[in-house]
Simulated assay, not measured.
Amino acid sequence: MTDAPSPASVPSAPTTSDRLSAIDVFRGLTILEVVGHHASGLALRHATPGSLTHEALTVLNRTLHFAVPAFVFLSCVVLTNSLLRRFEPRQYYWRRLTRGGWPYLLWSVLYILWYVWTGQREATSLEDPQRWWTWLAYGKGSYHLYFLLVALEVYLILPLLLPLARRRPSITVALLVGLVAQIGAYFLNREVLHLQFPASTALWYVLPITLGVAVGARFKEFEDWWRRRRIILLPLLAAAYALYLPVALAYVRGEKVTPLVYSGLSWTFTALVALALMGLAHRLQRGPDRLRVAVATLGTVSLQIYLLHPAVLQALELWRAPLGAPPLMLAQVVVYALIAVLVPAVIGRALLRTRLSTGLFGR
């Protein structure tokens, strides 16, 4: 999912070092989910439809389908916290343009060329202006790049929400009001806007935006709030997941589902996951140092992993597709997923604070 959520897309929080560590842990956890989600998709392409392996992978894939809302939430948390301390419009928008807009444009073009070079798209598609418009205007240069486009829209919107943030809204109220507003946005699109790709717009993330603004405005209080509310929110998350999963599986199988039901359950599930991940990030902050440092270190290069891992997975699949009995095939996919995390992470860490990193990743 720039100084926003993509995994490393989320800007660094100008708070105490321990809180920043929690943000990095959140990023690290979420980027592991992103790679796991895409690696399970790779495995699904090579599993036998209808088999137990295929069914289990489908469940895992749909369960790990919360990265973009989580990264949008995190971007709003970090940027709201920062903007409440200091907001200089010229500097803010210039940084968002260079750290968000440039990587989006650059990596869209790189992936468009990558898909042609690897034979996943016809070379003639490069000559079609309409295809270029779709790729760049809707984040379709590659399947994961729409997040960067959503992040850019979030950057534009957030300063407009500062009056709300200054009122320090209740996180609980923001969760409820955000869900109602999200459903309103759904009907606005269905009845009026008719957007071709609504999930590639900030309109589809009203709930995580609202929730992120509230958490960002009360960031120092979040850990205590989570301790008090988790006894309710965790069972609520389990219930939302139990309702969401059957509908999500039916949707993937091509069965008829009610769009509002599917979207509403997805919004609820992913919003609660985002809150739970933030709570877990704070918990890990006080956990074993090795685990915390490992996850947080991945978080510091989450944008690099986010941008590079699809090409790594695709290159490995083109080189040697996962084949054989399910245990062997799954083991191969796990190895591919580890490579897709570690190679971009090593590259990202090696390039940190260099001009090349700034040119490639905006930071």
Rank of each mutant, 00 (worst) to 15 (best):
V109K: 00
Y241M: 04
L211W: 06
W319E: 02
R283G: 14
A271I: 08
V247Q: 04
S142W: 04
T172R: 09
R253P: 15
S302A: 15
T201Q: 12
R353W: 13
V295F: 09
L84T: 03
T30L: 14
M278N: 14
A4E: 10
H38K: 08
I231W: 08
P14I: 05
V333E: 01
A296L: 01
L105M: 01
V335D: 00
V346A: 11
T354N: 09
V333D: 02
L57A: 08
H144P: 00
L211E: 06
A202N: 07
A174M: 07
P159V: 07
G50Y: 10
Q182F: 00
V213Q: 04
H282W: 12
Y186V: 06
Q332I: 05
L97A: 14
H65E: 11
A240W: 02
E191M: 13
V177Y: 11
Y262R: 09
L74R: 01
L148W: 08
L29P: 07
L44V: 05
Q285M: 15
W133L: 14
F361Q: 04
L330I: 04
I339P: 03
L156P: 10
V247M: 03
R96D: 12
W133M: 10
R353Q: 13
A22W: 11
A214C: 03
V34A: 14
T354K: 02
L29V: 01
L328T: 06
L136M: 09
V252R: 10
Q91L: 14
T118Q: 01
P235H: 02
L275N: 14
M329W: 04
R190G: 09
G184L: 07
P11N: 08
Y186D: 05
T201G: 15
L351Q: 12
L193W: 02
Y244R: 05
T358C: 14
V78K: 09
H194K: 07
L106R: 05
H37G: 13
A123Q: 05
L20E: 14
D24V: 06
A123C: 10
R45N: 14
L234Q: 00
T201Y: 08
I183M: 06
R353G: 13
V343Q: 05
K220G: 15
L307K: 10
